[in-house]
Amino acid sequence: MILLGGKSSTEPDFISAVARASGHATLLHCYQCGKCTAGCPLAFGMDHKPNQIIRLLQLGRIKQVLGSRAIWICAGCWTCTTRCPCGIDIAQVMDSLRVLARNEGETVQGKDVVSFNELFLQSVRRNGRVFEFGVFMGRNLRRRKPFLDADLGRFMLTRGKLRLTAERIKGTKEVRRLFSRQGAPVRNPKERTKE
């Protein structure tokens, strides 16, 4: 139940952090027309629909937002942003919420997404480009499902569409420096220095 009035749970700092990170200060403009949810291809799989995420943010229900599965299900298709009559960049809000959820350690609902993204970025950090085969094998190991999408893997192999060794670019040093900032997602990966 959403309780309002008296001691409100609103945390203006948090809301403005989301607004800032999303390049927008118009979250409060939303009048709940629902056009974002109407066009969202993944709303059917979300616990809180996109308009409800914005509503929860307006009401300061931070825990509910960061703990929602919806923010990890958003595929970033930008349909909502494109059509929002209030000019709210909802896709970017979702992005910011994912980043903030990670910073707050609230990733239970999105552990597969986060795990995949980490593997992906580790690969980029190590090689400068993503090593698809490595990332997929890593995903299957982490999820303890060695044969997930094995049908696809076999097909890709037979068509020569899966490179089995990583290709490393010359400028990996430059790329790694980009990962050196405070708070970078895979700043200190448990990787071997040599592959």
Binding site: Q32, C33, G34, K35, T37, A38, C40, A43, Q52
Partner: peptide, 28 residues
């Protein structure tokens, strides 16, 4: 239905209207 329509497209002789019922929180 309380909600704005996101898209209308032609599907054969029909028009498909994609909206949301924001009171139910469901797509329509």
């Amino acid at each position: 239905i309380r909600g704005r329509v996101s898209k209308v497209y032609q599907d054969g002789s029909k028009l498909i209207v994609k909206g949301a019922d924001t009171l139910l929180g469901e797509q329509v």
